[in-house]
Design a protein around this nucleic acid. Sequence first.
DNA 1: AATAGACTACCGTAAAGGGGTGATTTTTAC
DNA 2: GTAAAAATCACCCCTTTACGGTAGTCTATT
Lengths: 206, 206
Amino acid sequence: MISVFIVDDHPLVVEGLVSFLQKEKNITVSGYANTAQACIDFFKTKTANVILMDINLPDINGIELCKQIKSSYPGIAIIALSTLNQGSYITKMIENGASGYLLKNADTPEILEAIHKVEKGETYFSFEVGKIYKASTEHQSHSPILSKREKEILLLIADGLTNTQISKQLFISVDTVDTHRKNLYTKLKVTNTALLIRKAIENNFL
Amino acid sequence: MISVFIVDDHPLVVEGLVSFLQKEKNITVSGYANTAQACIDFFKTKTANVILMDINLPDINGIELCKQIKSSYPGIAIIALSTLNQGSYITKMIENGASGYLLKNADTPEILEAIHKVEKGETYFSFEVGKIYKASTEHQSHSPILSKREKEILLLIADGLTNTQISKQLFISVDTVDTHRKNLYTKLKVTNTALLIRKAIENNFL
DNA sequence: AATAGACTACCGTAAAGGGGTGATTTTTAC
DNA sequence: GTAAAAATCACCCCTTTACGGTAGTCTATT
């Protein structure tokens, strides 16, 4: 018998999971929570084998919750639940001890497979997650490393300041700002301000 | 007895809705679909009083589906389902005939209230939607109207082209391109390229 | 006939962009 | 522990582009 705990701020999703998991004879739902705090409180007195955990929680971030639960109760397997568009979170959840990662548009057999696998100590990642994860790590490697100063200047450029204004604000020479700006262009492989801002937004520097 | 049809590509949400609505004695679930096409097919032979419709569907956009259903079957009340971060969609769904708008983190009594209200011909919008809607319409009024030429030039600027390059591409004088650029600055209330690109992305012009 | 918006165009100054060079310090790597 | 690499700073020249102000024509709307 596998006991499953659910953390999700969407009552509908919780209802769906409970309703569906209760039909399974070797699975029992030990409880559910709509907030991270409620989840932490639950595990102070009770326990479960597997947690289905939403990443977007109203109070504490799912990544932080995952970390906390794993450090207190390493034996509990955590499956992250998320919607499509959050490539960067996948990495973070895995780093913080999640054993599986399911998309919310996963169908019921997939959820069962995930629960059974992580309960046995294995990992489960939905097919699409693999793609997103790969894409996000590749994206990461393509996304260049900017120095502290470069990030600082990039932000000021994005705020509409000219090199002269930036130089005054940072107490450095205009020429230096200009050099940093040119280095930003080189690193981000762009040729002017318009493309710089676009690339910066695409790479989440802003 | 109110018959409800569900369209959502997340099996969990469908499961949750079905499980919860079946408990209500004056509500029956006439069916559900994971895609817009499956929904359209259903209504060719069967019907329902209320449709709970997700906005993010894999095949056809929820807004388009809403429009189609409303034009074919004006008597069916549609409640849009969505997650928080989609202010601009609310307006479009209402324009296309939706009678209600629920956030997916709505709790069960709220869903019931929405179904009963729209079935009686009234409208229902969750509290938070009101806020988002208001914010988005205010945002809309702030979001300026760009002419065809201006949009064209904005796109080319965002592609990193200089005024000279744009002028050659559009067979007009550099000065003209420059004027359009300045008008873009005025309309979007910015003073240079960096801010222009930022505002353009914020206002979904790119 | 008047007002407003779109599209066109020009001028002068300020800023950006492309190139190269070089010094100092801090990080990283072997 | 030292050498290589990267970061931060700074300067020069020169060309191109951007920005601010001004202004004409045309068309649609009132």
